[in-house]
Nucleic acid binder design. Structure first.
Lengths: 355, 355
DNA sequence: TTGTACGCGTTATCAA
DNA sequence: TTGATAACGCGTACAA
């Protein structure tokens, strides 16, 4: 005959049991008020026997503070985001904040929904990575105007006064493209991401900058619009392979690792070899990069570090720091493996040791 | 001169602006009460111009319901959990619940902490996967006694009256071991997990059952205690390879995929081949299984499905269903790849098509 | 159909 | 050092 409705012990219960007022109980638990030594012991004893835990919902209402941070991600299981979330959690946990995790599923509608919900739930701040098909209207602006601290991570929107923590996409794309150029490639294609995403535009710009900086022509026929996934990379590569042999690229800079993987498969399925016939490089260094049929040369995105940085920045803003830089970047690293054809076999012959 | 403290629009503000009482505003937004047609329009108009959103903290306090579910996971970025969380999110989102994500980092202390916090935050229910070094005291019992619905997923604790959703570890381990036996292996080792985990015990039991069921001896020297990670698998395999050649196993059943990966590397680093000299099979089918130096034969754990099932079960309990089965299992699948030496090369020569 | 009074559990404020 | 009271923003119960 269990009662269904949970009956929780309140401060008044503890107060009654220990012969003081509810206010004193509150003081004991909040810690920041003078309480008599004996009183304190009495209260704590009563609280222990009754199993009292302060009701954080009531606290939140009274204090207008929830100690909770909303995290909005476009994907949950793409390896980048779990890592970033781990970084976020690491920092927020230490600072005494908890995470409300929302999933936008790459859609503008669910992202908007998530923000409104987080507003209703009165989170103290929001960390957000923009959905791929974020629409034209910006629900972010409302958040900023309400005065809710907002920090974008990885995928940002500029011009609305929110801080952005990301890698330097343009510079990183320039570096990896220049790496190919430095090893003698000249006909280099780019599997570009959706134009709606700032990272797509930045990476494309870096790709162009590298070509132009090396005095190479930038042939628009070699820039193919793709999505962010394997299938899209596969399809885009197929279309590049359909070009006349003389126009066919000898190397490909993919928008990210999954797209690079798709491209790699397309090359192999067409009977060509990576990197001998077509070199492929990615962007992300997700878990699988090292284990692909041909280990992938890519840009390592420090997802964990990025999450930490974004979280630290948000907490600083919540705690009233005068908003610092609007743009923070965390460093990336070029990871050279076999797929770019720039390494001697000996370097990568034996499988990596466990890490 | 922005004010730092967020000033939110309340129901009273809307009431004043539309010439009704706060109660009527509440009725309009909760939907379940008779409200005059004209009144409704007035209220909605005022709410829109003012940008009113109900304060869910206040709602929660009044209703003793937060529409929030706590999710406690021991690891965030191990590929299994992101997938499971995605399944959980899918179901809870549709049912109008939100997720408070807590990370126990495989420690009993942080797990306990997480549960107390979730209690304080008055979540409507909790989904939990047990930490590896969960101590002897069970903080779960308190949760159950308080009447907070609790459902374990993947890693469970029995005997405290909470439902458990998991795969049938014992049966799955039996199946994959039997698969090896069916292909002629007789000296089969097991890289076992920590005894403290129920899944470790179950998988070990399945391994034994397969051997005994086939009339094979179960040699304790071939059961090596390992952890759940690459390094542990590597070390355990090294110790097996140090056995006299006649006692050395021809096949290894690892507790999970990371351990199998470590074992595979150990075999290769010792100059032997997988599967020709030592066959290796795993358990999990994480993302990397397909892409390992030798593609890994393993048990596919439907993490997504498991998350969905656990979430659905929890919501049913929250909504007052008489607690159903205490134990639910979701099906697994044997995924045969090259590492077990049971497949002809032709089957796996070309890389998989994109999925 | 609408409004008033009160409670949810806590904290800030002021008085003792 | 401690207690009484009001307030946080909303919903239930009842009255109008």
């Amino acid at each position: 005959m269990k009662r269904r409705t949970v009956r929780h012990v309140t401060a008044s219960d503890v107060a009654r049991a220990s012969g003081v007022s509810a206010m004193t109980v509150s003081r004991v638990f909040s810690g920041r008020a003078p309480v008599g030594d004996r009183t304190q012991r009495k209260v704590l004893a009563a609280a222990r026997t009754l199993g009292y835990r302060p009701n954080q919902i009531a606290q939140s209402l009274a204090l207008s503070r929830t100690q909770t941070i909303g995290v909005v991600v476009p994907e949950i299981s793409h390896s980048f985001f779990p890592e970033a979330i781990r970084g976020i959690e690491e920092v927020t946990y230490r600072a005494g904040y908890h995470l409300l995790l929302m999933h936008s599923a790459e859609t503008a509608e669910r992202e908007r929904d998530a923000l409104l919900t987080l507003e209703s739930k009165r989170v103290d701040g929001i960390l957000l990575s923009v959905a791929q098909d974020a629409g034209p209207t910006h629900p972010y602006r409302r958040v900023v105007q309400l005065g809710i601290p907002l920090v974008f991570f990885d995928r940002c929107v500029s011009g609305i006064g929110a801080t952005c923590v990301s890698i330097d996409d343009e510079e990183s794309a320039r570096v990896i493209t220049a790496h190919l150029i430095g090893h003698g490639y000249t006909r280099i294609a780019h599997l570009a991401g959706p134009r709606s995403l700032a990272i797509s535009r930045a990476r494309r710009a870096g790709y162009r900058a590298a070509l132009l900086g090396a005095g190479l022509a930038c042939d628009d026929a070699l820039i193919v619009s793709a999505g962010l996934h394997e299938q899209a990379g596969y399809a885009a590569m197929v279309s590049l392979l359909a070009l006349p042999v003389s126009k066919r690229p000898r190397a490909v800079v993919a928008i990210n690792d999954p797209a690079a993987y798709g491209a790699m498969l397309a090359v192999m399925h067409s009977g060509l070899r990576v990197p001998e016939d077509v070199a492929v490089v990615g962007f992300s260094d997700d878990l699988r990069a090292e284990l692909m049929p041909v280990p992938l040369t890519t840009i390592r995105q420090p997802a964990y570090e990025l999450g930490r940085t974004a979280a630290a920045e948000l907490i600083a803003q919540i705690q009233g720091a005068t908003a610092g830089k609007k743009q923070k970047t965390v460093g990336t690293e070029l990871v050279t493996r076999r797929s770019c054809g720039c390494v001697t076999p000996a370097d990568t012959e034996s499988p990596a040791r466990p890490r």
